[in-house]
Structures are given as C-alpha cells and as structure tokens.
C-alpha cells in the first residue's frame, strides 16, 4: 500500500536556519500517525512539506505515489491548520462547504450537516466566525478539513484551542470518521494523551532541527485511554521527549 514517503526530506530556511534534518520516513496508507516533539522543532514544517505548501531544500516526498502538487490537483489532500483560517465574510456552514468547492467536488449538504453536528456546532450554521469562540472556530476548521472527503488528512494541532473535555469528545467522535474511510492521517500535537488516543503510531522528534528520536506503535488497548497500556506508553513518550530535550541543552 502506498502511503506518504519522505526520502531524505529536509528544509533549511534563508539565513541557514535548519528546520528539518534530512528524514527518511514512511507513513502507511489508511493509518493515523501522531508527530510529537517540542515547540519549534519543525513538525509543522514537515506537514507543510508533505502538503506541498513549501518546497524541500533537499530530498523528496511522495504522497500516495505522487508528488504533493499532483495529489493536491486531484484534491486528495486536506489540512486543518493551527490557525483555523476561516474566511470572516462567510458563515460557518459556508466556510465548511467551501472545501468542496475548492476541491471541485459537488455540494454535499448532508455531509456538511453531519460534520457540523459531529463537531458540536449545530445551531451555529449561519453565524460568522467573528461571533464564534476560538475553540468553536477550530472545530469548524476541523469539519472543513473533513468535508472534502480527502485521502490524506494533515492535522496541525487541530484541537489546540479546545478545552480538555471537548477535545476528548471530538477525538472520540471524529477519529472513527477518517479511520473508517481509510484516510492516511498525520496529526501534529503537543498532547501525549491525544497522540495515544487518536493514532496507531507515534513518531517523536528532537528539538530543532527535527530528527526522529523514537518511533512507537500504539497498541489498541492503549487507545482506549487510562488503562495500564496507556500509562506505560505515555511514560515512554515523555521519557524520550525529556531525554532528547536534555541532550539538546
């Protein structure tokens, strides 16, 4: 199965700031992988390289066997950004429907309505983003990312502004949606709990420039949360993160 393949993929910005060290990584098709690491380590840059929003300085990336640009042309990729980036002049519902327009897919009001319900924004369809809270906007952005029915879903801290309870609820409600459709999902997060609950695999990065310091499978039992497998995996991830942060100092 073709997933996302990074071959010696690296990014160095002008002025010599290296955001991502050349990486060789493969993300299997239909699985959810969490990318976790300290702030500013280059996780979001890696996501942008995979989405084709930035050109790599070295190496190559293949998304479902094609270049990111080709995959984007086929509307196969969707991204939920750190910043919800809702267009202020559109209602919440129109913002979500916009993804289908941009993806050149026929309107699907039923899917949009279902997503709005799943992210808990029923009743706010005609409200403009300015009248929504930060968490509500982020939920709308999440629904927008799912509205185009993508093959590859890139989530950049999608629940960052959402309170803990809602975050758990969203994880429970939304992840089956992309998992049942066989979407290849990459999730950038700071929350170890979220990474364990939502993903099948966790890749831990070092402080900038991003290098892989651990690559862990998530057993099904751990995904349920709060059990001994969950706590053991959480301790493991936190230990790796602390050790890599200490080495960087």
């Amino acid at each position: 199965m073709q997933g996302i393949t990074c071959i010696g993929l690296g990014k160095t910005y002008r002025g010599g700031i290296e955001a991502v060290s050349p990486l060789d990584l493969n993300f299997s098709s239909g699985r959810t992988t969490a990318l976790i690491g300290p702030s500013g380590c280059g996780k979001s840059t890696l996501l942008r390289l995979i989405a084709g929003l930035e050109e790599p300085s070295v190496g190559d990336v293949r998304v479902l066997g094609q270049s990111p640009a080709e995959q984007r042309r086929r509307a196969g990729i969707s991204v939920a950004f750190q910043d919800p980036s809702l267009l202020p002049w559109l209602t919440m519902q129109s913002n979500i429907s916009l993804a289908r327009k941009l993806a050149r897919k026929p309107p699907d009001p039923a899917r949009v309505a279902r997503l709005i319900g799943l992210v808990g924004l029923g009743g706010f369809e005609k409200v403009r983003p300015a009248a929504l809270s930060g968490g509500m906007r982020q939920r709308a952005a999440m629904a927008r990312a799912l509205a185009s029915d993508p093959q590859v879903l890139l989530l950049d801290e999608p629940f960052g502004a959402v309170d803990e309870l809602t975050r758990r609820q969203l994880a429970r409600d939304l992840s089956p949606l992309w998992k049942s459709q066989g979407t290849t999902t990459l999730l950038v997060t700071h929350s170890v709990d979220e990474a364990i609950m939502l993903s099948d695999r966790i890749v831990v990065f070092s402080p900038r420039p991003a290098r892989v310091v651990a690559d862990l499978e998530v057993p099904y039992a751990a995904e349920l949360g709060d059990g001994p497998e969950f706590r053991s995996l959480k301790d493991k991830v936190l230990t790796v993160l602390s050790a890599s942060a200490a080495m960087a100092k």
Binding site: A51, G52, L53, A69, Q71, R72, R73, R74, A75, I77, S78, V79, F81, D83, S85, L87, L98, A99, K101, L102, A103, R104, S148
Partner: peptide
C-alpha cells in the same frame, strides 16, 4: 493561511483571487 487553504486543494492564482 487563507491562501494556503486554497493551495491545499491544488488551486492556483485565479482561485486565490476569486475565493
């Protein structure tokens, strides 16, 4: 970020301008 949203779906300058 608004322009990134357009680019993610493989759309170019005209879609940027239009949407």
């Amino acid at each position: 970020a608004w322009l990134d949203l357009v680019h993610v779906y493989g759309r170019k300058r005209f879609a940027e301008l239009w949407f």
